[in-house]
């Protein structure tokens, strides 16, 4: 109970809400590092997953390569990238991007594969060209799974961005590493709480985005099963 109280005191202390080590500064740093990593990761992973999923080729290769990526410890990549690129945000973003890619490749590949072949054929029959078929028919149907991949990546990246502090980076990880070094365990726990809250907020925000992006027609498909049956028999 004492720990909880001291953490609450720490978090509500005005001194911790200003300056270069204040919560707002660390929040912006954390969002910047994770946001850039997820965006770069998405720019690499989504086209690969979507195109391979559409053609249904090299799926095993893409999945295996990205799963090997999952097996590489982020901390090893971080330290290695630091040796090459030196101090700054570049090594951090490299390590986090590598972490962000696998779930997005896997999910978007599966999402495109799962699109009903009848629908694809109907689209072709109606005269859709390949790009239009991907963009206007398959992708809208694939959105829920693709977004689930982005969400998984983003939450992982936000939680792992704490490692940045190990190589002198910013973000909420600073409180964890500094709290450990200074034997200030209140600070350490407060840092952990902030990271957890940010990860949950990320999850919630991306769920909201998903709701906006999923076309209305597909949302109708997700109504309770009894009604769906009525739909199909009608």
């Amino acid at each position: 109970m004492d720990t909880v109280l001291s953490v609450i005191h720490w978090l509500t202390n005005p001194a911790h809400w200003s300056g270069s080590d204040g919560i707002p500064t660390r929040f912006v740093e954390h969002i910047e590092l994770s946001g850039e990593s997820v965006l770069i990761g998405a720019a690499i992973a989504l086209p690969i997953g979507i195109v391979l999923g559409h053609f249904g080729r090299f799926g095993a290769l893409a999945m295996n390569v990205s799963n090997v990526g999952r097996a590489i410890p982020s901390i090893a990549l971080l330290v290695l990238a630091f040796q090459i690129f030196g101090l700054g945000n570049v090594p951090i973003i490299i390590a986090l991007t590598a972490l962000a890619i696998p779930p997005m490749v896997t999910n978007s590949y599966v999402a495109m594969r799962e699109v009903d072949p009848d629908i694809k054929e109907a689209a072709r029959g109606m005269g859709f060209r390949e790009p239009a078929q991907i963009w206007r028919v398959e992708l809208p149907l694939a959105v829920p799974l693709v977004m689930a991949g982005i969400r998984t990546s983003a939450v992982q990246v936000v939680a792992t961005a704490t490692l940045a502090a190990l190589i002198a980076g910013g973000g909420f990880g600073r409180y964890i590493i500094d709290g450990f070094g200074q034997q200030d365990y209140t600070k350490l726990v407060a840092g952990g709480v902030l990271v957890a809250l940010l990860a949950l907020a990320t999850e919630a925000a991306l769920s909201g985005l998903e709701r906006v992006l999923v076309p209305r027609g597909i949302r109708l498909l997700r109504v309770p099963a009894t009604k769906q049956v009525v739909f199909k028999t009608a």
Partner: peptide, 28 residues
């Protein structure tokens, strides 16, 4: 190191003994 910010031999010592008030401190 992070503990430099709070240990008497480091940042607080430099402030008190030498009167050096730094622009910022960076945990390394």
């Amino acid at each position: 190191p992070p503990e430099c910010a709070t240990r008497p031999f480091c940042k607080p010592g430099l402030e008190q003994t030498y009167g050096i008030h730094f622009k910022d401190f960076k945990s390394l």
